[in-house]
C-alpha cells in the first residue's frame, strides 16, 4: 500500500509536482499515467527519498521511505536502468546492493536467473543493451523480495518479447498480493497492463480510477456493421434515430453507427431479416482520448501563430509620438 499526500515539488518558480495525492493498493497493477514532463519521474524520486519534496509526504505501509530499515526489502524500484557503474559487472552491482540491506548473496543468483541475465552476470554492465540494462534494473527492484514495487517506464527500449514478458511479470507480482506501480506515457500500454490508473498532467492529479472507467469515460464508442444490403440497413437504423456516418467509398458495404450497441443493431437486423457479415464494437483511439483529457496539461505545447503577430499597442504608441 502506497499513500501519497499533498506531494509538491517546486524548482524556483516552476512547479514540477503540484499537491499530488493518490493511493496504490496491493494485489493489482496500478498505472501511473501522464504525458512526458508531467512529473512522473520526479514523483517517483520523491517517493524514494532521493528528491526532497517541497511539501507533502509518501507512506509505504504507513512508513516514510527514509524511515525504513533495509528499504530494499520493503520497496523495490526501477527508476533509471542506467544507474549502474559501466565498469562494474551485473553480479558485483547486485552484490553490493544485497549486502547493503542484509540480503543473502544467493538471492543475487536467484534474481539474475529470474530476469534471464545469468549468462552475462560477470560482464561489465556498460556493455549491456538497453533491454539488458532494463532487466538488470528489474533484478535490482526484486532483490529484496519487496511487497511494494515501482517501475518507471519499464518497457522503454524493450523488444516485443521483452514487453510481453514485463507485462506478464508485473501481473504475476500483483497476483501474489504485492503493490505494483508502473509509470508510462502510453495509455495503450497501460490499458493492457494496469487495472487501476493514477493519471497526472503537469504535476497535478487528473483522476484516479480503474482503467476500464478511464477508457470508457474518455473514448466514444461506436459500432461497425458490414452487410450486403448496407444502404437499406442504413435507412432502417436512421429511422430508429441512430446516427450513421456517411458512406465510405472504400468500404461501401460498411456502416459506422455511433451511440448504439451491438445488441440493439443485431436485434434490429434480425427483425428486418438482414444478413450481417460483421457486427463489432469500435473503440475510439485511446491516445486521442488521452490527448483530449490532458490537452490543457501538456507542458510543452506549440505556440499559436497569432501570438507572434505585433499588437496594436505599438502602432498606437508610434501614432502618439508623431503628434
Amino acid at each position: 500500500m502506497i499513500e501519497a499526500v499533498g506531494l509538491t515539488k517546486r524548482y524556483g518558480s516552476t512547479v514540477a509536482v503540484n499537491d499530488l495525492s493518490f493511493t496504490v493498493k496491493p494485489g493489482k497493477v496500478t498505472g501511473f499515467l501522464g504525458p512526458n514532463g508531467a512529473g512522473k519521474s520526479t514523483t517517483m524520486r520523491m517517493m524514494l527519498g532521493l528528491d526532497r519534496p517541497t511539501a507533502g509526504e509518501v507512506l509505504f505501509d504507513g512508513k516514510r521511505y527514509t524511515d525504513l530499515r533495509n528499504p530494499l526489502r520493503t520497496v523495490g524500484a526501477l527508476v533509471d536502468a542506467k544507474w549502474v557503474h559501466p565498469n562494474r559487472s551485473a553480479y558485483a552491482h547486485l552484490k553490493w546492493m544485497a549486502r547493503s540491506n542484509g540480503i543473502p548473496t544467493k538471492r543475487v543468483d536467484e534474481v539474475l536467473d529470474t530476469v534471464g541475465l545469468t549468462e552475462v552476470a560477470r560482464r561489465k554492465a556498460g556493455g549491456f543493451s538497453l533491454g539488458m540494462s532494463q532487466r538488470l534494473g528489474i533484478a535490482t527492484a526484486l532483490l529484496g523480495d519487496p511487497d511494494i514495487l515501482m517501475f518507471d517506464e519499464p518497457v522503454n527500449g524493450l523488444d516485443p518479447e521483452g514487453i510481453n514478458w514485463i507485462r506478464r511479470f508485473m501481473q504475476r507480482l500483483a497476483a501474489e498480493g504485492r503493490t505494483v506501480l508502473v509509470s508510462s506515457h502510453l495509455l495503450s500500454e497501460m490499458a493492457q497492463t494496469a487495472e487501476e490508473l493514477v493519471v497526472v498532467g503537469r504535476g497535478r492529479l487528473i483522476t484516479q480510477c480503474t482503467t476500464e472507467e478511464f477508457v470508457d469515460s474518455t473514448s466514444s464508442s461506436s459500432v461497425k456493421v458490414r452487410a450486403p444490403q448496407a444502404e437499406r440497413l442504413r435507412e432502417v437504423l436512421t429511422a430508429q434515430g441512430m446516427a450513421v456516418a456517411p458512406p465510405d467509398s472504400r468500404e461501401p458495404d460498411s456502416l459506422l453507427v455511433s451511440d448504439s450497441t451491438t445488441e440493439r443493431i443485431g436485434e434490429l437486423a434480425a427483425g428486418h431479416g438482414f444478413v450481417l457479415h460483421e457486427l463489432s464494437a469500435q473503440r475510439g483511439s485511446l491516445e486521442d482520448a488521452f490527448m483530449r483529457i490532458t490537452g490543457q496539461d501538456v507542458e510543452y505545447r506549440t505556440g499559436s501563430p497569432e501570438s507572434a503577430l505585433p499588437g496594436d499597442a505599438g502602432d498606437g504608441a508610434l501614432a502618439a509620438a508623431d503628434k
Binding site: L68, W83, M97
Partner: peptide, 16 residues
C-alpha cells in the same frame, strides 16, 4: 563517478 553514472541514487535508495 557515482554522480556521473547515477549510482549515487542507487546508493541512497538502498541506504537512505
Amino acid at each position: 563517478t557515482e554522480y556521473r553514472f547515477g549510482t549515487i541514487r542507487a546508493t541512497f535508495q538502498a541506504m537512505p
